[in-house]
């Protein structure tokens, strides 16, 4: 049994989203723990003091109303969570995290096999967060593989393993293969991004040896050109595909695509995106 955690915005989630997280977790063979991101801390606004010491302070009077309103919204979210679990017989563990959502998720990810995130997760009522920053920060710091769930809740039908011959792209393929072995998609495709236009698949024999041990059949698709454009193009009209991407911006060496191509794919919110880094 795997330990799967899902980060959920306490004041902005739908029952369908919760059910879908649960379905994905079940398919992987996991036990789902929902981390309820309440994010009370980031609502504490730092207001400059009217003194020349340059320090900042929390102004309780100004923020009190906002905090109270947020607590009410969280209570509504909590109620919705429990009613959804009851109605749909979901056996989920819930953990409330009231602090910095990124730090909380990163800590939880150390003790998990996989982190599920909705591509649109954000604490929208906060002035300090937007979708991109929030997901990006988690991806940079996560200590387990992350699966980004698309807004269209389709079933996973195909694995698309992006590969450019680098260790990080192979590492992501290996991690996805090991973690998602129960999914058994109908199709497996290696999308080879021939960045140097060599016309040759890097380490074809070793790659084939690895994939052959895990999958009965797999296809190869080769593309040349700008990786993000090619990948997005390939993923068009392939609903239900799960695309793997190697390291997410750790260092130049370990980054699969040199220009943060995964941002574009992630933000296009097309498909399931599996991201991990060695």
């Amino acid at each position: 049994m795997k330990q799967i955690i899902a980060g959920l915005n306490a004041i902005d989630f739908s029952p369908e989203q919760l059910i879908h997280f649960n379905n994905v977790s079940n398919q992987i063979g996991g036990n789902l723990v929902v981390v309820f991101l309440e994010n009370l801390v980031s609502d504490i606004l730092m207001i400059p003091r009217p003194y020349p010491d340059g320090a900042y302070a929390f102004n309780e009077e100004i923020d009190w109303q906002r905090l109270e309103e947020r607590k009410k919204q969280i209570a509504i979210g909590m109620k919705l969570f429990h009613s959804t679990c009851e109605t749909h017989h979901l056996n989920l563990l819930l953990r409330e995290e009231t602090g910095d959502p990124v730090a909380d998720l990163v800590k939880e990810s150390r003790f998990a096999d996989m982190l599920l995130l909705d591509s649109s997760i954000s604490n929208r009522s906060s002035l300090h967060h937007d979708t991109e920053i929030s997901v990006k920060s988690v991806l940079h710091n996560a200590q387990c593989p992350v699966l980004i769930i698309p807004p269209q809740l389709t079933a996973i039908k195909e694995f698309v393993f992006t590969y450019n011959g680098s260790y990080s792209s192979m590492y992501a393929i290996r991690q996805a293969t090991q973690l998602l072995e129960k999914l058994q998609p109908a199709k497996v495709t290696v999308l080879y991004v021939d960045e140097k236009n060599t016309g040759k698949l890097t380490e074809e024999k070793l790659l084939a040896g690895y994939l052959g041990a895990h999958f009965k059949n797999w296809d190869l698709a080769v593309c040349n050109g700008e990786p993000s454009v090619e990948i997005l193009d390939f993923l068009q009209n392939r609903p239900g595909s799960l695309v793997t991407l190697g390291a997410y911006g750790r260092s130049r060496l370990s980054t699969f695509f040199h220009k943060s191509e995964s941002d574009k794919i992630l933000l296009s919110q097309l498909e399931y995106v599996f991201i991990t880094h060695p």
Binding site: K2, Q3, N31, V33, F111, A112, D113
Partner: peptide, 13 residues
């Protein structure tokens, strides 16, 4: 260290 989290994780595996 991280008593609750590690025990929950180990329990699954």
């Amino acid at each position: 260290p991280d008593n609750k989290l590690i025990k929950e994780f180990i329990k699954r595996h």
